[in-house]
Amino acid sequence: MSVNALLEDPDPDTSRHAHTGAWIAAVLRRRIAQGLLTPGSKLSEQALSASLGVSRNTLREAFSTLAGESVVERIPNRGVFVAAPGAEEVREIYRVRRLIEPAAVLWSTPTERELEAMDAIVEHAQQARAAGSVPDMADANQALHQAVVALTGSSSLQLLMERVLAQMRLVFHAMSAAPDFHTHYVQRNIDIVARLRAGRPAGAAEVLRGYLDDAEAELLGHLGAQRTTADPSTN
């Protein structure tokens, strides 16, 4: 299975969803998580209604759901745009991740199939690192952390993580000026999987907690530097 496939809609038979607002929100959320919709992109009601085969009312229902998740924002008289998360959104993302992900690896018992899927993800990440492909490293990172939460077997937690992954992808775009951001987290992902394979969930959880702390600090530092550059009066 490809890394992108791990982020795709597991049920491609759209006819069974009756084109509900919740399903449309899930489709758009996954497109954002895959990097197909970037911060600042305008979401055209006309184009999306036609491509998804849904009414504008259904689409507006989906937009309301995503706006509540801070994934899109409505701008009066201009339309709906993919959001660009700021520092407080980053802090909230990592509050959620610290509670979910270390617990997922600490209290789960991965099957061989789940471990093989993780092995494939980190192998893809290493190949992407060697090729210098930032988008592919980001894809692998998203897929691994989705797989971590899937270890819980909880559909509610996986839905929550799906929302977090969409927000994370938007945050990653802020790091486009720091292409090495993903590079030094590849080895940590490898270490997490290695500890799970060795039957050391506590060690995996410890690595993951440090990983999340460091990633949050790096992202906040970068966002702060961007803000200072954009507004020299803050110096």
Rank of each mutant, 00 (worst) to 15 (best):
P85I: 05
I192N: 01
V171Y: 06
V71I: 13
A5M: 08
L52W: 03
P179N: 09
I121Y: 03
R163H: 11
E92A: 09
R91N: 13
G153H: 08
G68N: 01
T234G: 12
R16H: 13
L66E: 04
V164Y: 02
S51A: 14
A138G: 07
A62M: 01
G153L: 11
A128Y: 04
R30K: 08
P39G: 09
F63I: 04
P110D: 00
D13N: 14
A47V: 15
F63D: 05
P232M: 00
L196T: 02
D11N: 10
L157R: 11
F63N: 04
A47K: 13
Q187F: 03
V71Q: 06
L159D: 15
R78I: 05
A117W: 02
Q158W: 08
E123H: 07
A125Y: 00
V149S: 14
S155M: 14
P85D: 07
R74T: 13
L160G: 14
Q127A: 10
R95G: 12
M175A: 11
S55G: 15
W107I: 09
T183M: 08
E69P: 08
L151P: 00
Q226L: 12
F181I: 11
H19T: 15
N189L: 02
V72M: 04
P12Q: 10
Y94R: 00
S15H: 11
D136K: 03
A204L: 03
A62I: 02
Q158K: 13
Q126Y: 04
S176V: 12
S155R: 14
L59S: 10
E89R: 10
G21V: 10
V54H: 09
Y94Q: 00
E206N: 13
L159A: 15
G203M: 05
M137E: 02
I192P: 10
A67Y: 01
S64F: 00
T152M: 07
E45F: 07
Q142T: 10
A62K: 04
S2V: 05
S44K: 08
E114Y: 00
V90M: 03
Y94N: 03
H145P: 11
A117K: 05
G40T: 05
G79S: 03
T109I: 09
P135G: 10
R200C: 10
L196G: 06
Q187Y: 04
S2I: 11
P102E: 04
V82M: 03
L212G: 05
S70Q: 13
T58V: 15
T183N: 09
F63L: 06
N4K: 08
E114H: 01
L144V: 02
N4F: 07
G40Y: 03
R91Y: 07
